[in-house]
């Protein structure tokens, strides 16, 4: 077992959209370090971008001095990203996953973040405990 098969790394940002670039760079670097190919790296990056964008927009409603923590854990073949925030409780059942054909034919806008996360990642799990939202994204290596 190489030492990378058990590894943790994290980044904390303020809830500001200009910090998204830093998040993308952090996630890309970690995904590459753990051996993902370019296509998967690009997809994982967008899934995390979408998650953080949703937190900034909906969880914190653009309040800029709140925090978002992105923690990446590697356990064997599991690449796990835990994204935590202390914003409004997120209820995943309140968001309908769009039927893309219907969505596009009616020129909707927004609401695509969770759809993208689910298309890209192997697991997308939301939880809320002790006033903290945790989004768990998993991609298998």
């Amino acid at each position: 077992m190489t030492k990378l098969q058990k590894h943790t790394s994290s980044l904390v940002i303020h809830s500001q959209t200009h910090r998204l670039k830093e998040v993308r760079e952090f996630v890309a670097e970690q995904a590459q370090l753990h051996g993902f190919k370019e296509d998967d790296i690009n997809k994982i990056v967008i899934a995390v971008d979408e998650a953080c964008t949703n937190i900034i927009k909906h969880g914190y409603r653009f309040a800029e001095n709140e925090t978002i923590e992105i923690q990446i854990n590697r356990n064997g073949n599991e690449f796990e990203i835990l994204i935590t925030d202390h914003g409004k409780k997120f209820d995943p059942s309140s968001v309908a996953v769009p039927d893309m054909q219907e969505y596009l034919s009616h020129y909707h806008r927004g609401g695509l973040g969770i759809y993208l996360m689910k298309r890209i990642m192997d697991k997308v799990e939301f939880s809320f405990q002790q006033k903290t939202n945790t989004l768990r994204l998993v991609k298998y290596l």
Partner: peptide, 11 residues
């Protein structure tokens, strides 16, 4: 690839 993931080439 991102456009494609969402089916945007259809529109």
């Amino acid at each position: 690839n991102i456009f494609d993931l969402l089916g945007f080439p259809m529109l």
